[in-house]
């Protein structure tokens, strides 16, 4: 099993706006993952909090953190504390729900984000495991119910078997693939690659040129 914390900068870092790495910086990261998956500006966002997130989101600034991630801000962006106001000005309806029960993805710092607009709806279940590091444990998008092991980075690709073989070969040159999974929805196929190391921006751009419908978390 591959370790969750793979870089020294997961431990010494991130540079962030206070007050909590798990409930603020980690929440920004979960929001950013949702932003990358949805890949558009939503008209409505519903956030379900569980356990520690449900009890302490107000005190930790989790609300503005998660919204700032959904808007695509970095954890040290000075606009982070104003994210909810910014979202409302852009006409995004935002709802926070403190859930009573245990986390469906089995972690005390859980947020489940629903994003929707006129065209599309996705659900992203993430947890913040400490120090700003997160896991994504479930994604519902385009009819697929994706259940990654959790640790990032994860690359998702919609395509056919040929695309998959080509992608695997390319990824193997850039890093190691810790695990792969295949999901079906109607005629569509989605491939999930759990990677050992983060991809460089240039490498990611090159992959995106040849394969559309990539999601990199």
């Amino acid at each position: 099993m591959s370790a969750n914390y793979r870089s020294v900068f997961d431990i010494i870092g991130p540079v962030m706006i206070g007050p909590s790495s798990s409930h603020t910086a980690g929440a920004v990261a979960i929001g950013r993952a949702a932003n990358r998956i949805f890949h558009a500006e939503p008209t409505e966002v519903v956030i379900h909090y569980y356990e520690s997130f449900a009890q302490t989101h107000q005190g930790h600034g989790t609300d503005y953190a998660i919204i700032s991630g959904i808007l695509g801000f970095a954890p040290d962006d000075s606009r982070v504390p104003d994210a909810i106001t910014i979202a409302k000005k852009r006409g995004i309806k935002v709802t926070f729900i403190e859930e009573d029960g245990d986390s469906p993805i089995n972690h005390p710092n859980t947020a489940i984000i629903e994003l929707r607009n006129a065209d599309r709806e996705v659900t992203v279940s993430g947890c913040s495991i400490g120090g700003g590091t997160i896991e994504i444990r479930e994604i519902k998008m385009d009819g697929f119910d994706i259940k990654p092991k959790g640790p990032l980075p994860i690359l998702l690709m919609q395509g056919q078997a040929d695309d998959h073989h080509a992608m695997s070969a390319k990824l193997e040159k850039l890093t190691s693939i810790n695990s792969e999974a295949t999901y079906h929805a109607g005629d569509g196929i989605l491939y999930e690659y759990d990677l050992e190391n983060r991809l460089k921006n240039q490498d990611l751009d090159d992959l995106a040129k040849e394969h559309s419908k990539l999601v990199y978390l």
């Binding site: 997961d10 431990i11 010494i12 870092g13 991130p14 540079v15 962030m16 706006i17 206070g18 007050p19 909590s20 790495s21 798990s22 603020t24 910086a25 040290d76 400490g130 120090g131 700003g132």
Partner: peptide, 8 residues
Amino acid sequence: VVCATPTA
């Protein structure tokens, strides 16, 4: 702004 080491 702080640097989380290991957490904030």
